[in-house]
Each structure stands twice: as structure tokens, then as C-alpha cells.
């Protein structure tokens, strides 16, 4: 397989928030730690994990729109350049685009056409984007509340394609859509990827991730526990590397519906060592201390000393 160019790579990212503890004391709360992902040209990387695993925060960190009381550590590189705050500011909405969850992200009092043009686009570009998504001319002068669900999806997509985005972050793009519409939306993302863009698909709908992504990164308690080609997730637990990924697979209604006990730990009371050890069926003494490094295994990445 030829080596494709990395669009974005994130290494050892950590994000912490300054929060008030009891009364007037402030403390740092680490919500993302030791997180690694990379996106290549033409691929959809799905990020799967439960709420509280840090998925949406990662999106904010990439776009540089974290709230003021957050601090970021680690290295993010975009097409070989370090992704600094200034670069984020320059690229945001242009080369790095966000496809938000719903029309609630649009200004309800503005025609969608002019919103898609935004500050950087032009009328022509907007028209091309609309044509591409089969949006008629009347749609330009509609208000967000007049859009049907499917139209809304296509509008949100056209905001992303208008600025020649090379990296698209799609945050939970399908909840609330019917199966056909979800398929349609994912089809559009697929086409955008096939044109050479990198796409990060954030979702808690694992079935969706399994169906459309090229690779899947599994998040747990603010870190990546496994990144693997999607075929491995389709094949089942034997092909998977991390015990948490296996547990996810086995908990799906179609594959056994078997839960493992316990809950994801909270930021602020994370266990020592591997974050998953308290729930892990194959843990040993060695899992409970020290940092567990990410390593390559059978064409994927995994954070587990026992994975084979």
C-alpha cells in the first residue's frame, strides 16, 4: 500500500480544565491524557467512545475553540506544520472545517445562503456547493427553521466544502436522522473523503462507525485505547486488540448484548496505570502502575501490554 500523506496527527495530547473544587479552591482537572490519532488524505477516521471519553473536546482542541479555563499540552501537526494557535485561527473555517450536529448551530435570523457564504466564501462558490448537493436556488433565501432534515444536513455540509477544507471534523452528524438520511449523509462524507480530504467522524453510534469509516479510534476516559482498520471491527473480537474494544463489540445488541461490569472512571479520579484495568478481564499486576505506551500491533495501534 502506498504511503498516504498525513493531514493531521495528534501526539500525546492532554487537555485540562481549571475547575472550582470545594468553596474557593481551584484545581486542574485532566480530561484528556496521552491521546494519539492521525488522519490521512482520503480517509474517514471514526472516533468512537462513550460520552465523557473526550471525543467532543478533541474536536474543540483541533479547531482551537476550547473554553478559556482549558489548557492544552502535546503536539498537533497539520500537513507537517505545527498546529499553533495562530495557525488554527488562520485555518479554522477554511482548511479545517466543522460540520456541526444540527441546524441549531446556524443563525436562525439569517438566510442560509449568506450564512454558507460566510466571511470567506463567495456567491459563486456557494452556488457551486449548492448545486453539488442538489439544493435549489430558493433554498438560498430560506431561514434555518424552514429546512427539512435532509436539506439541513446538506446545508451544513456545504458550509464545509465551500472553503476548500482539507480536514473536516463531523461531530455526531447522524442522530435524529432516519436510516436513509443517515446513509445519505455518510455517503456525502465518503465522497468528500474520496476527493482527498481527511475526515474525522465523531460518533457514539458504533454501528455507523463500523459501516462507513476506514479506521476507527476507540476512546476511553480521555485517551485512545485502540486504533484499528475498520475490517477488524467487522470481524469481531478475535481481530481486535484492546479488551475494551472487544467488550464494546460484545455489548452490541446484535452480538450478544453482554455488558462488562463497572463504569468509565471520571476525570479527577482516574486509576493509576492503564485506565481500563479496574474493568479489565485480563488485567495483571503490571497493568496497575506506570504509563502504558501506545504500540503498533497487526496494522493498528493499541495501549495494552497484554494485547496480541
Amino acid at each position: 500500500m502506498e504511503q498516504k500523506k498525513n493531514i493531521l496527527s495528534v501526539k500525546n495530547l492532554s487537555v485540562s480544565f481549571k475547575m472550582y473544587d470545594k468553596g474557593l479552591e481551584q484545581k486542574d482537572l485532566k480530561v484528556i491524557s496521552n491521546l494519539n490519532i492521525s488522519v490521512q488524505e482520503g480517509e474517514i477516521l471514526a472516533i468512537a467512545g462513550s460520552s465523557g471519553s473526550g471525543k467532543s473536546l478533541l474536536a474543540s482542541a483541533i479547531l482551537g475553540i476550547l473554553p478559556n479555563n482549558a489548557s492544552v499540552d502535546g503536539i498537533m501537526t497539520y500537513c507537517g506544520m505545527e498546529l499553533t494557535e495562530e495557525l488554527q485561527k488562520k485555518l479554522r473555517g477554511k482548511e479545517i472545517a466543522l460540520v456541526p450536529q444540527s441546524v441549531a448551530y446556524l443563525d436562525p435570523l439569517m438566510h442560509v445562503g449568506s450564512q454558507v457564504v460566510g466571511v470567506r466564501g463567495t456567491l459563486e462558490k456557494m452556488r457551486t456547493a449548492f448545486k453539488r448537493y442538489e439544493l435549489s436556488k430558493e433554498v438560498e433565501t430560506m431561514y434555518p427553521f424552514q429546512l427539512s432534515g435532509g436539506m439541513a444536513r446538506r446545508i451544513l455540509l456545504s458550509t464545509a466544502v465551500i472553503g476548500d477544507a482539507r480536514l473536516i471534523v463531523a461531530d455526531e452528524p447522524t442522530p435524529g436522522l432516519s436510516k436513509e438520511m443517515a446513509k445519505d449523509a455518510m455517503g456525502h462524507l465518503r465522497t468528500l473523503a474520496d476527493e482527498g480530504r481527511g475526515i474525522i467522524l465523531i460518533t457514539h453510534d458504533i454501528d455507523l462507525a463500523f459501516e462507513y469509516a476506514d479506521r476507527v479510534a476507540v476512546f476511553y476516559a480521555g485517551t485512545t485505547v485502540e486504533t484499528a482498520p475498520v475490517e477488524d471491527f467487522r470481524n469481531g473480537p478475535e481481530s481486535l486488540r484492546h479488551p475494551y474494544s472487544k467488550a464494546l463489540w460484545e455489548a452490541l445488541p446484535q452480538n450478544g448484548f453482554k455488558p462488562i461490569p463497572g463504569t468509565q472512571p471520571y476525570a479527577g479520579s482516574l486509576p493509576e496505570g492503564c485506565l481500563f484495568w479496574p474493568r479489565c478481564p485480563v488485567r495483571t499486576e503490571a497493568c496497575m502502575k506506570g504509563e502504558i505506551p501506545s504500540r503498533s500491533l497487526r496494522g493498528g495501534e493499541v495501549c495494552c501490554i497484554h494485547a496480541t
Binding site: S50, S51, L248, P253, P259
Partner: peptide
């Protein structure tokens, strides 16, 4: 709104 493991639980 829950992850699949919690859902099964």
C-alpha cells in the same frame, strides 16, 4: 444517549 456497554448493563 448511552454507550453500548452501559446500554447492555
Amino acid at each position: 444517549m448511552l454507550d453500548v456497554i452501559t446500554q447492555a448493563q
